[in-house]
């Protein structure tokens, strides 16, 4: 009986030492997976998934602390591709309302923000809110949106005090 326990414990300890040695010298590289997941997301930085950008959401997905279906602009297609890539089940897209802190207007690459120039008071709040610096304008002067850079993330709509920004289809 005694020899049995001695044999087992020594065996276990020997193997444990081997594993510790192996884990010491191998380098850890994690972010290549986050890159891959981020590339699948639409990356319009709309923060409607509750994370401040697409990369934080991708990191949350890889760390398995966020479900795959929080991205409204990505739609069902992105959920399916994420599930396919990570080998997980594809749940249906969470309705935007269910996602914390979301703008009422769903973000989409097919739309762009348009500033009604004669209402704009130049308060510069939208410039700070825009994740991709697509709005230009000097303090107290009229601002406007650069159509090529705007991703339709609708983040500039809530902060505008005079509500002069609207989301319109890109190819009107």
């Amino acid at each position: 009986m005694v020899t049995g326990t001695v044999v087992l414990s020594s065996l276990a300890i020997a193997l444990a030492i081997g594993l510790v040695l192996c884990s010491r010298y191998m380098a850890q590289s994690e972010d290549s997976v986050v890159d891959e997941v981020e590339r699948i997301l639409p990356r319009i930085q709309c923060a409607q998934c509750g994370y401040p950008g697409c990369r934080p959401y991708a990191a949350a997905i890889v760390a398995e602390s966020a479900p795959l279906n929080l991205c409204p602009p990505g739609g069902e297609d992105t959920v399916r591709r994420l599930a396919r890539f990570l080998g997980r089940d594809a749940a249906h897209l969470a309705s935007p309302a269910a996602v914390a802190g979301v703008a009422a207007v769903p973000a989409s690459l097919d739309d762009i923000a348009v500033i009604d120039e004669d209402l704009c008071i130049g308060c510069n709040l939208c410039v700070r809110a825009c994740p991709v610096d697509a709005i230009v304008g000097v303090h107290q002067m009229m601002h406007t949106v650069i159509t090529d850079h705007c991703t339709g993330c609708a983040l500039c709509l809530p902060p505008c005090p005079v509500d002069c920004i609207s989301l319109t289809p890109r190819h009107a």
Partner: peptide, 11 residues
């Protein structure tokens, strides 16, 4: 467009 948005966001 997404690539452009990512670059601008990082900048």
């Amino acid at each position: 467009m997404a690539d452009l948005a990512t670059r601008r966001h990082r900048r």
